[in-house]
Design a protein around this nucleic acid. Structure first.
Lengths: 186, 186
DNA sequence: TTTAGTAGTTAGTAACCAGTAACTTAGGCT
DNA sequence: AGCCTAAGTTACTGGTTACTAACTACTAAA
């Protein structure tokens, strides 16, 4: 198998592993075994476990940011907002990506991880703000619903038959964010 | 030291440790050392690492739910909503509690943890819904902002001087949730 | 003074962890 | 043929992990 193929395969397997068990819970040995290679070779490719983790977390955030920017490109005003909102929620249907974001936040006890995730989140925030032209409160609401989706993915809310689960699954009307106003800066 | 005192002390130390490093990243050895006792005694008190973790996560969720219910007790309508909202955000100022919730979500790869966290989240949802009398979309928005606070706590947003950080810190006007409407059930 | 319980320890175990160094094997190019 | 590089392995390390069994020191009541 070629280097780039192998790399992609390991990244895909590691993504699932890290999404389920987090930075510390996942095992490089397990990842290697599932990929059919030696654990030593994983380290040869990615250097450290944390580097592999960060690469996956960063690409999970980037998928959302890039997707939104692409959706809004060439449009303006409400069209752009609507397209970006739709793309945002499309990207957020990827459960592994959501869980990787969550694991990124959870691993922020490590300063290196925290700095990386801060940068990722900042980029998502700025992309949302610049692309939609919404005021900060609405951007906040926009991203807040994204964070709730992270939690929903963790709880595997799709598999739950209950009132609260229905509530979490309920999709917000996209135009909503344009109407949220009245923040008070603390 | 008496049993209840020791237990409380260990719980408090373990809370910080689990909040920072998660279920798998935290070490019982470290917790024991910080408490000035043997690691073996931690297991004698709590049985397993996971049991200790779950006790902390559950109490972090319960603090929010119970606080809200208490705040709304004896009041009605907008008064109750306002009081519950205030209490909700008060409880969410506890960074360790927020991080423990986050680590609970992150550890949901383990079925036992997932079931427990589902139950906690369900209770928070129901308490919010019953107490405020809001429609599901608003409850969703209410809790979504809570999830964003989890992320903000992980990123230690208080220490960041940037536009996005200001945005995350911006406090929403409590009455807002009463005016969110227009969901579309998917 | 015995008895019962509570607070805590010592001394392990077996499994697993991330990470390293040195080696091998196979294919393409000159 | 001979060389180089990329793909991959074997074999190992030092450390940590959660968890257990068996023991001790102390206190308070009967």
């Amino acid at each position: 198998m070629s280097g780039t193929e192998r790399r992609a395969q390991v990244l895909s397997i590691a993504a699932k592993e890290f999404a389920d068990h987090g930075l510390h819970g996942a095992s490089t040995e397990t990842i290697a075994r599932e990929a059919g290679i030696t654990q030593a070779y994983v380290f040869r490719m990615f250097g450290t476990k944390k580097a592999l983790f960060l690469e996956l977390v960063e690409s999970a955030f980037a998928a959302v940011s890039d997707g939104m920017r692409e959706a809004g490109d060439g449009k303006g005003g409400l069209d752009a907002l609507s397209a970006m909102g739709a793309r945002y929620f499309d990207q957020l249907a990827d459960r592994t990506g959501l869980l990787l974001q969550l694991q990124g936040f959870a691993a922020c006890g490590d300063p290196e991880v925290r700095d990386a995730v801060r940068a990722c989140f900042a980029r998502t925030w700025d992309t949302t703000e610049d692309g939609t032209g919404l005021e900060p409160v609405s951007v906040k609401a926009f991203l807040a619903f994204g964070m709730l989706l992270n939690a929903g993915a963790a709880l595997d809310v799709e598999q739950v038959d209950a009132g609260w689960a229905d509530g979490v699954r309920t999709r917000i009307r996209p135009g909503l964010f344009a109407h949220i106003t009245g923040e008070t800066n603390r």
